[in-house]
Design a protein around this nucleic acid. Structure first.
Lengths: 252, 252
DNA sequence: AGGCATCAAACTGCATGCAATTGGAGCGCT
DNA sequence: AGCGCTCCAATTGCATGCAGTTTGATGCCT
């Protein structure tokens, strides 16, 4: 009865897809921090597959923006700049606005129940780690997107939501998830009432405040961002490579 | 001076990327129609690389939604359903609204000149084939996106625009590009004037009318769509595979 | 001590080879 | 003829192997 994801975002059940899912999850749960190295060998060994497969998986994740791939270099978990993060949230707002617009007043009772159950789960996880809370919150949005039955929308919302997770782990302070949960509930009930413009407004505000809670300030420079800031300058010199710095500690 | 794509959409200049670009172009110029088969061997042979590379490239294009990959089956150029096409256009409208909103009143003279030059090129290509016109029109939108200097926005706009190209070749009639060109000019000048709301309105209207010109009707069934229509039913039976049909001619 | 050249280990880029699956031609049965 | 079965060529899924590049550690020179 419920719309089943008949077409999973271009991935079946290859070994590649399995690895992608595993890594994706590890990344959004911050088991793998931004900047973490992902050597093909190690991945292959860890997942019991050849380097070929690990490599392919990294390619897919790079296409999603979760991983950065540079020629002849070890792949790393993506480290979006502050500006990119802000852009991602802007896109996300538009996309999810589309989602709730399509969904307003069109949800079945079962779907509403499913959404409420999910938020209950979010609620129940409040005692746990931030990582889990963030994952659940993100999955709420993806669940919503899936209910539109639009594979494309699902894909883009998922991708951009994952990217936002990355961001959260980079720039966010310990942060509070309570209000987010309440906002989720409000969205569900307004969706059920079918008030299209109101729910769009709610979603917009919700995401905007999540973004603002996370991206507190232009973060002059924090941690490894320094390297990112220098990259464009180096671009003019070598085209790709950061000029050798005196001795900035590269963690990892 | 102009903002250069310092970060290409996750692809450097590997052989993989070269093949991706080539195929992408072939697809949007309709040299490869939706449904066309893309065997790894042939691609590898044609581009002078091994199957490994061809395969990897197909994976990337599948992630972009231009190619459909099904386990143990030959990859084919994607055949979006009518509904998917409509969804793609909806997303595109939102995304490009974001683009012009960011750009309004912020373009340099050089950039405006670049845009005008591009539209001149579109104009000059009116005598040529539809495929070239479509490609140029698409590239106009991508050019616009690039000027935002937001890699993420560039990526999504590009992807969704390419998908829309696919759609055009599936559902569109011979069609007229003239008005589109005029609309492009109007967008540029309004962008230059800095009228944010007006340009968003223009872009919205422009894309909407392109979509409507293309997606004339819900197209009950046309050509190979019949197979697509049956797919979900087959899903319940075999999980993936379309039940054997009597004898519908599969072109290709 | 501090900086620079040198070199080996680590890692990526890619091709090739082998097993497993698919699709379709050919053949026999009804 | 129409339908199903068998078998083979075509094709994918994956691992392995080799060559080229990067990393960073060691040792030499100032």
């Amino acid at each position: 009865m419920a719309a089943r994801p008949t077409s999973k975002t271009s991935e079946s059940s290859d070994k590649v897809s399995v690895i992608c899912r595993a890594l994706r999850r590890a990344i959004i749960e911050q088991a793998l921090e931004p900047g973490a190295k992902l050597p093909e060998d190690s991945l292959g060994e860890r997942f019991g597959v050849s380097r070929t497969i690990a490599r392919h998986a990294l390619g897919q994740l790079a296409a999603e923006g979760l991983v950065e791939l540079r020629r002849n270099r070890i792949a790393v978990v993506a480290t979006p700049s502050w500006q990119e993060a802000r852009d991602a949230f802007d896109i996300r707002i538009q996309l999810e606005g589309l989602v709730v617009r399509q969904l307003a007043g069109k949800l079945t009772k079962a779907q509403i129940a499913e959404l409420n159950a999910h938020v209950d789960a979010e609620d129940g996880a409040r005692g746990g780690t931030d990582a889990v809370s963030i994952r659940l919150a993100t999955e709420f949005h993806i669940l919503l997107a899936q209910m539109t039955n639009s594979p494309i929308l699902v894909r883009y919302v998922s991708e951009v939501a994952y990217r936002c997770c990355l961001t959260l782990s980079l720039y966010s302070r310990p942060h509070s998830t309570e209000c987010a949960i309440n906002e989720h509930r409000a969205i569900i009930s307004t969706l059920a009432k079918g008030d299209e413009t109101k729910v769009m407004e709610l979603m917009h505000h919700h995401l905007d405040s999540v973004a603002n809670r996370a991206l507190v300030a232009p973060t002059p420079q924090r941690g490894r961002d320094l390297l990112d800031i220098l990259a464009p300058y180096a671009d003019e010199v070598t085209g790709d490579r950061v000029v050798k710095l005196p001795k900035v500690a590269r963690r990892g």
